[in-house]
Design a binder for these strands. Structure first.
Lengths: 386, 386
DNA sequence: CCCCTACTGTAAGGTTCCTTTACAGATACC
DNA sequence: GGTATCTGTAAAGGAACCTTACAGTAGGGG
């Protein structure tokens, strides 16, 4: 504990709590704010005056009904700051711009092959999205970026991203130099986990995991309500997980040290579908089975069994309360697949989480990036000229 | 945030911080305490007067050397409270009594077969230990108990303990009724992890795991400096972990879904030692190999490989900074085994923790129980008549 | 229609808790 | 022996919150 920052510590804490309340619950009256933050009406008024002077809150209306005068409703000023979030994929870059309240103002896309390097690609995408949103790049408080690959939790820089050869260590530094503002990079699966936690299936759950089943395979680990990245940012790289039971009934995969990646993933699903004599891609067959196609039924059962093989190990280590199935396969499988996976996990070990499909519509990675960006943008806005 | 407890919130926080400082760093002067807690000399003096009036601190000496007058040294009064910690094993119950400063006053043992039920066994052991310590049972602020088995993190009660048929759900309630004071029950392996973190190999490490390799097999998971128990208290029950690679070169175990428990444990080691043509128990062979016995060399290598098979999966999920090998096998293996395990993990996946042997002397479970008990006893002492 | 009740919002004064300043006294170093 | 440096207490001050008090406004009952 240092001495200096204590003078305003309580006041800052209360001011910040008030801002967070207004951001999450919307406009609020002076009296109610006081009750929720734990301050008297008078002090709450002083607090709002302070925040108003700083341009962070304003009166946005008046409460109708009730006895006395119509109480003024205070809300956060949307133009207090903006955030850009990006989802970097091998074939597409998507972006979203939102104001400090979380209202999405514009989205944008870019084919990464159009740009020469990561910085160019990000600049072009962000420039387009901010123009659509009617703001300038200077008004952005921070940039939040989701990529595949591993991020070093100490530096925040990329360690390596297999599918994106241009995105390597040093990108963070380049982006910071180019944009001159906070840049956040996070693993895409972790961001999907964050999105699910803030507004999806795992909202309010302390210990959960999100299994991302798509072209790549990944796991977001949330412990005690916080994302767990691991010492080197490698937590959740379950593509490498060695699972037993390679000898599947309709054996199609390599024998001994089968990596989880080779058992489940969009590619492995395609192969498996053919082995079951089904036409169409693996994801199509999942959809067919979910919609009641009897021919695709055994395929779905085998998929659930394979998923459970890997997830059972995870549950034995972490014993999460909830396991969210996400990614293209998780979304396609829905409740049906989730229920089967849960049953299969129950047959493999003592710890059985509730298994559910993703509850995020749209791109969960972009959503998670936006959430992460908003968190730090709010810190920025609040801290500057405090 | 509620209104009521805010009046003394800052004062309580500072008082508590001061107490914790004195408990961890020993006696301290008024001025130094102020600097460390972040208070002025004057306020630190008032704080110490308050704690002195409550009988929690006293002047324990004077600092020699230095310029001015010899500053008084303030320290925590040992008799402010006592704790009893117990380690419940199938064949032995051990206990330890300490004062609030953590000084161990007495230990005790009991053969559990001498007592009819858990409450009787605990009462007898604690009665004996407190007598040896020269205190009464009434002076104990809390009881801290380590057992095998799973503890429900919501209730704190035992869910089941395989090796201890009498220790089942309801024991917590019985003990609370009998002792009329806080009772803490925790899984033995988790307590070993806690001990390692507070005074052992993983001290100061944020993300670590402790692998307990003994008759049973277990894992203590520490994430962000805090023990992770899991939704149902089942985190770390890696005996059930399914590991591939059952086809060992000198194959002695079942083929397909080999549980980690069947690969490594004192019993499996014994079998493996025989398969390698060695005489003596598995643990003896580990010791022999560590001390340079060339015949036991391949046995140790195979043991390291087996351990790495399970630990690699854990590292892929958690990416811990450090992995501590504990239990009889971990202790016997020492640095030699740890280095080999680390090398083997490196060959199996991308996340490689530093692997080290336990650094706790004596019974780590009892030590961890004591630590946990001290934490709540200090809360108790501080909160009561606050 | 009028009055009462219930609420908003501000002003004034009070409490808690920490801080700075000031000073008397003690101890080591030169 | 003088000085610099430290301890410990006293006095005054400031920060941040609180309660009380009151003027003013909206709805409901008689």
């Amino acid at each position: 504990m240092s001495r200096a920052p204590k003078t305003h510590l309580i006041r800052d804490t209360n001011d910040r709590a008030a801002l967070d309340l207004m951001l999450s619950n919307g406009p609020i009256t002076k009296t109610r704010l006081g009750e929720l933050v734990g301050l008297s009406k008078v002090t709450a008024g002083q607090l709002l005056t302070r925040l108003g002077d700083r341009g962070l809150v304003e009166v946005v209306g008046a409460q109708q009904g009730g006895r006395g005068p119509n109480a003024a409703l205070y809300g956060v000023v949307p133009s207090a700051g903006y955030v850009a979030a990006l989802h970097i994929g091998p074939d597409q870059i998507t972006a979203s711009v939102a104001d400090i309240t979380g209202t999405e103002l514009a989205t944008g896309e870019l084919d990464p092959h159009e740009a020469s390097d990561p910085v160019e690609a990000v600049r072009a995408t962000v420039a387009h999205a901010t123009r659509s949103a009617g703001i300038t790049m200077e008004q952005l408080r921070c940039l939040s970026i989701g990529t595949p690959g591993m991020i070093d939790p100490r530096t925040g820089d990329i360690r390596f991203a297999n599918d994106l050869p241009d995105w390597r260590a040093g990108v963070l530094e380049d982006l910071r130099r180019s944009f001159q503002r906070p840049i956040l990079i996070e693993n895409d699966v972790n961001l999907a986990g964050l999105a699910e936690q803030s507004a999806g299936a795992s909202h309010g759950v302390k210990d959960s995991v999100l299994a991302w089943i798509d072209r790549g395979l990944g796991l977001a680990v949330i412990v005690d309500g916080r994302l767990h990245r691991g010492a080197g940012g490698g937590a959740g790289e379950i593509g490498y997980l060695a699972v037993p039971g390679a000898s599947t009934p309709h054996g199609t995969d390599s024998p001994q040290h089968a990596a989880f990646q080779s058992l489940v993933s969009v590619e492995a699903m395609d192969t498996l579908a053919r082995a079951f004599g089904l036409s169409g891609s693996g994801v199509d067959c999942v959809r067919a089975a979910v919609e009641g196609d009897a021919d695709a039924e055994p395929f779905l059962e085998e998929l659930a069994r394979r998923l459970a093989l890997g997830l059972a190990g995870i549950c034995v280590v972490l014993d999460p309360e909830l396991c969210v199935l996400a990614g293209e396969v998780g979304r396609a499988g829905g409740e049906v697949l989730a229920a089967r996976v849960q049953k299969a996990i129950a047959s493999l070990g003592p710890n059985v989480p509730t298994v559910v499909p993703t509850a995020i519509s749209g791109d969960p990675v972009l959503r998670g990036a936006l959430q992460m960006g908003l968190d730090t943008a709010r810190d920025e806005v609040f801290a500057h000229q405090g």
